[in-house]
Design a protein around this nucleic acid. Structure first.
Lengths: 246, 246
DNA sequence: TTTGTCCAATTGTCCTGACAAAAAATCTGT
DNA sequence: ACAGATTTTTTGTCAGGACAATTGGACAAA
């Protein structure tokens, strides 16, 4: 049942060929021209048709298998699994998420200080002794209603932060602009009930459910750049993800 | 700074060479002989020393980069990021998790029925009209104290379930034994507060915080095998994961 | 009808080789 | 001593080929 699948390859483009292929296939899946369950052309045929080598095709498919869009089976072929995969829970900020979702995020800075790292934070960030941290709390709202209360610590030897920029921009945005390339993050999601202070800030009742999230983010040089503890109104936010068996 | 790194390769083993390499490196990282931040031998040298080709080495390293153990940088080399990565939030059951953690999970079956699928479930599982489902709720305890309340729906055309086997075994265990190969799952994590029934079952106070999780699992043939809604005592459970930037 | 065997299709693994691109280290001219 | 250019090191991308392993179907035998 091999579907034709027309993909344009631009050999003069700086973006790698395998990635062009992956994008092409992903696009076809997302816009519905490759329905869930469809079997793809086999690798060799596709390679010949696009005038690419089989390893290149395989690399493209590998990536899509990783992200859960395709399933391969030896002796059988490659199938589209689902067209409704939410992209793997990414290393993104709440700000990014909201903007993508078309909401209008706004932030108010509740506190800001530049202090020597408390021992707990020093350990979490594996800080050298002479490095201090920025410590601040922010309230993030979407379309006017409060959504999250965020407390963060950021080491001060990477970027200079001040009240003004934090009001206007997302933290991850600022860090990326400063040349930080995030590589991975350790994250823990749980639940709690709102205490009086949290309830007031989030405009909800004391005792209402909150989603908690702690995260420590690492950049490409291995430094722990940032750690934070966030709470979200449970009625307004939840974490979605797609798990892929490897 | 290339560390020697001794890895044994067994060419007669059925396990792929690249995987042997990956296991070797991962082992060295986890047992501390490759400390965080260490730079590895470069690919070509390692390939020559192990008498393997560079693509094989690269494939091994790719996998480790994916799981967040290594970071590569063109012109620089490959570094160990962290030795304390929790393996990527896996497609595992609570039962598996607890057994790995050395707890003694026990399950009590609170209800069990074999019914035509409600339309909502029928949609979630993309069921054909003639397929019914098993619907059951279980209470999972660890080391004696109640931990999670789990409600599940399983299509009935894959495996035959009954009360006895669900008492004795984990759901995923049963499904895997029936030949189901899970490939991916869509998951949503949030929070809520305990109502009277939940509180009683979980031996906690009404209004206390609970972590909620909904999951739909897909097997390698693209079938949605199972969907469920679980709640966990927030003081006893949270979700940990490592996010990797790709 | 059932069981077993073989064959074709397809992905999985592994190899060799080549050049490109980025980063770091080194050299050179001032 | 410094700035800029050059070289070296290292990973990234791509090609082509070979054989192995698994699956599913067709066919033959019981």
């Amino acid at each position: 049942m091999s579907t034709p699948l027309s993909i344009k390859i631009d050999r003069s483009s700086p973006i790698p060929l395998y990635h062009q292929v992956a994008q092409g296939i992903e696009g076809a899946i997302r816009d519905g021209s490759l329905a869930s369950g469809t079997r793809l052309e086999n690798e060799i045929e596709l390679a010949q048709r696009l005038r690419l080598s089989r390893p290149t095709i395989r690399k493209a498919m590998d990536d899509l298998v990783q992200s859960g869009l395709l399933v391969r089976k030896r002796g059988v072929g490659t199938q589209v699994v689902s067209s409704q995969i939410r992209r793997h829970l990414e290393l993104s900020s709440l700000n990014d998420d909201l903007e993508r979702a078309g909401k209008k995020p706004s932030t108010s800075l509740l506190s800001f200080e530049h202090i020597p790292a408390p021992t707990e934070i020093q350990e979490l960030l594996s800080l050298p002794k002479d490095v201090s941290v920025y410590h601040f709390t922010r309230l993030r709202s979407a379309s006017g209603s409060p959504l999250a209360l965020m407390e963060n610590w950021v080491r001060d030897d990477i970027v200079e932060l001040d009240e003004k920029s934090l009001q206007a921009h997302g933290l991850y945005e600022l860090l990326r602009e400063a040349g930080v390339n995030f590589r991975l993050a350790q994250q823990r999601i749980g639940a709690t009930t709102a205490d009086d202070i949290q309830a007031k800030a989030l405009d909800t009742a004391a005792g209402s459910a909150l989603v908690t999230m702690q995260r420590t983010a690492v950049d490409d040089t291995g430094r722990n750049v940032e750690t934070g503890a966030h709470v979200y109104r449970a009625d307004a936010y939840s974490f979605e993800m797609t798990l892929v068996q490897r």
